[in-house]
Nucleic acid binder design. Structure first.
Lengths: 234, 234
DNA sequence: TGTATTTTATTTGTCGACAAGAAAAATACA
DNA sequence: TGTATTTTTCTTGTCGACAAATAAAATACA
């Protein structure tokens, strides 16, 4: 029985319950606090948040819409599994969105966007200094999401956000293996990307975004392919 | 009071209500039977489908998740407006997804995919012969969605589906202006795309997909830019 | 002991009702 | 007549309860 209620305040604003449950569950899923495949119980959540099942259910429907949980009709609902077999489709989409969003940001950004981007850049650097993997992963996603926002294409932004979310779960596995070995390199690459965007150098931004994405993908792929081999030989 | 219930059968399977409402509302929105901006009343829908508000609400939450309706907290919910001011972002995303999905289809398709694609291709040609604009638009979307499915990248497929949906509404406006002038050209282009995919000619598929997308975009943009001018001069 | 069938238990999907919030209407006041 | 305030109406958000569907447990039977 988890005791995570918000300081015994039974008063809650009318529409806020759904968002609260949604946000919290989403973070718990992306931080792997809720393991892929683990069941989600509506009544348990209802008790935990001290509300009826109706708003809980609405939050779950939303999460299902984004693919973060899966619902078997009339049966259980559980945290979505990571589809390791088709990781390449994920990487394909991720690299393309890295490129497109960085490119558009160089083209369409406004001065105030740069401030936001630089803010997350510093948060990321701070998280790296503090060796806080969880925070690194989250701020990295926020950094690239901010770049996408500056590109001002909501279709790309929403797909990219979804990919970055999924990436948070995968990166977590990655850092759990290479524990405490945080590459300083990504900070420098982020800085270079910011510079290209600020200079409105579209081609350079594209190139850097692509290189950055492929570097990350290559590292993660190296890990998983090694794991695959281990799995087979065992 | 609309009388669209399904032949006075009060018996309905347990989980089917939500999907029925979702599918029907979705089609009505995309076919512009429900105009952008028009209000959506939960109780009215509940009466119409003879069910409680709970499953109606779930369907609405899903539609809102896909951006087809918008919900103002504690107030009304309405069909999403078409954002004419930012149509270029839509076109950018559409063209890129046309390219990527056609390219991937040429690369990853299996024989059985081609049968499905050819099926929709014929449906489209038949709809053009019958001068059935609504059916043309729907089968065109289905045709390209089938190509995306053959590419087997769920991230691209889902974004492309969303774009094709939105495109159904825009194309409808397009054909309402150029009424009954259906270009035969698109059928031929579709045939060429199928041939390139079947031949696994990735670069050619990419090229054709791009050209096809840009042709459509150019035509639609011509219409809207003309309308813009009219709006200003009036 | 192993399999088929019934019973129980658990969880989801649906319902009707009620209360909160906001808009519209009605009233008061200058 | 025009503006501010109250009242009413209408829609949404939430609740507790019940029924259907499935899984698990228990029983029957060979």
């Amino acid at each position: 029985m988890t005791d995570t209620d918000s300081s015994s305040l039974p008063e809650r604003k009318r529409g806020s319950g759904v968002k609260m449950v949604y946000d919290l569950l989403r973070d718990e899923i992306l931080d792997l606090k809720l393991a892929p495949g683990s069941p989600i119980d509506e009544v348990q959540l209802a008790e935990r948040f001290k509300m009826s099942r109706t708003p809980i259910r609405e939050a779950l429907v939303r999460l299902a819409g984004e693919g973060l949980i899966e619902t078997l009709p009339n049966r259980s609902t559980m945290v979505s599994n990571i589809d390791f077999l088709n990781l390449h489709t994920f990487f394909d989409a991720l690299v393309l969105m890295y490129r497109v969003t960085t490119r558009l940001a160089a083209q369409a950004h406004r001065p105030e966007d740069l401030a936001v981007i630089r803010g997350f850049h510093e948060d990321y650097a701070a998280a790296l200094e503090a060796r806080d993997a969880l925070k690194m992963i989250a701020t990295n996603a926020a950094f690239h999401a901010a770049i996408a926002e500056a590109g001002r294409n909501p279709y790309f932004t929403s797909l990219f956000r979804r990919l970055l979310d999924e990436g948070r779960r995968i990166l977590q596995l990655y850092y759990q293996s290479y524990d405490e070995q945080f590459p300083r390199r990504f900070v420098d690459e982020h800085a270079a990307i910011i510079a290209a965007i600020a200079a409105r150098d579209i081609e350079e931004a594209d190139r850097l975004g692509k290189a950055h994405a492929e570097a990350i993908v290559a590292q993660v792929q190296k890990l998983f392919s090694r794991n695959d081999r281990l799995d087979i030989t065992l």
